[in-house]
Computed example of a mutant assay.
Amino acid sequence: MKTVSEIKFEKIIKDGFHEILKPLGFKKKANNFYLKLDSVGQIINVQKNAFGNKDSISFTINTGIFVPEYWLAFYNYSDKGLPGYPTEPECLIRERIGSLRNQHDTWYHIKERTDEHYLIAEMRKNLTEFILPYFNRLDSTEKMLQELDKADMIMTPFGKLIVYGELKQFDKAKREYKGLLNNKTSPDFLMKVREYGQKYGLDK
C-alpha cells in the first residue's frame, strides 16, 4: 500500500510535469520525460534522493540535451545504434534546476503534511519559466553549437572536443584539443585526449 507521501509524489509527477509536457510531445518513462527533435533530444529527469524513504521523499530536477553524434562517439560500446529512450547521464549538456534558476542546488521535500498543490504549482513554474525556455535555446544542432561556444556547461571533459570533431568544426576542435593538452592532468587523460586528436586529425 502506498504512503500518503508516495501518492503526493505521483500526483506532482502527473499534474506538475506530465500535463504540461505530454501535449508538447514528451514521452514519459518512469520519472523521465524525453522529446526527440530533428537533430537533438531533450530530457527531464525527476531524481529522488536515495536516502529518503516512503514517508519522506526529496527530489530534484535534472535536464539533459542529447546529441546523437556525441553518444555514438562516446557511448556506443557495443555498436547497437542510438537508444530509443536515452537517459540524462548520457547527455552532452546537463543542468539541474538550481543552476537554471541561478540559485543553490535545489531539492523539494514531501511529507504527509506537505501541500502538494504548492509543489505542483512550483513544478509548473520550473517548466514554463526556466526549463522550457532553456530548451528552446538548444533545440537544434546549430543552437547547441552556439551555446557550446559561449557557455561553460556541465559535460564530460571530452564533450566539446568530441562534438566539434564529429560535426567537423575542426578549428574549434583544435582549440579545445590544445586546451585539454595544457591541463597537465594524468597520463591516462592525456593519452585519451591524444587518441581523439588522432581520430579528428588535430595533430597536423
Rank of each mutant, 00 (worst) to 15 (best):
P83S: 06
N31D: 13
Y70E: 02
F74Y: 14
P83A: 07
I61P: 00
Q103Y: 06
G84I: 12
K80E: 13
T141M: 15
L37I: 01
I61F: 01
I93R: 02
I110W: 04
F59C: 04
P133T: 06
T63A: 02
A121I: 10
T87H: 15
N53H: 10
K125S: 13
W107S: 09
K54P: 10
V46D: 03
Y134D: 10
H109F: 15
E88F: 06
V46S: 01
F66G: 01
S140E: 06
T128M: 12
L37E: 04
F130Q: 07
P89A: 00
N102Q: 14
H104P: 12
T106V: 09
G84K: 13
N49H: 10
N32Y: 07
K48Q: 09
I97F: 03
E95N: 13
R137N: 14
D38A: 13
F74R: 14
D139W: 03
K125E: 12
S58M: 11
L72Q: 08
E116V: 09
G81P: 04
E116N: 09
D105G: 09
I57T: 00
E90V: 09
N136Q: 15
K125C: 12
Y85G: 10
L92Q: 01
I97C: 00
F59T: 03
Y75C: 09
K80G: 12
L37F: 04
S78Q: 15
V40A: 01
T106Y: 08
F51G: 15
R124A: 05
Y75I: 09
F135L: 06
Y108H: 06
D55C: 08
I57V: 02
N126I: 04
P89E: 05
N53G: 09
N49A: 13
T106I: 08
Q103P: 07
A121F: 08
F51A: 15
T128P: 07
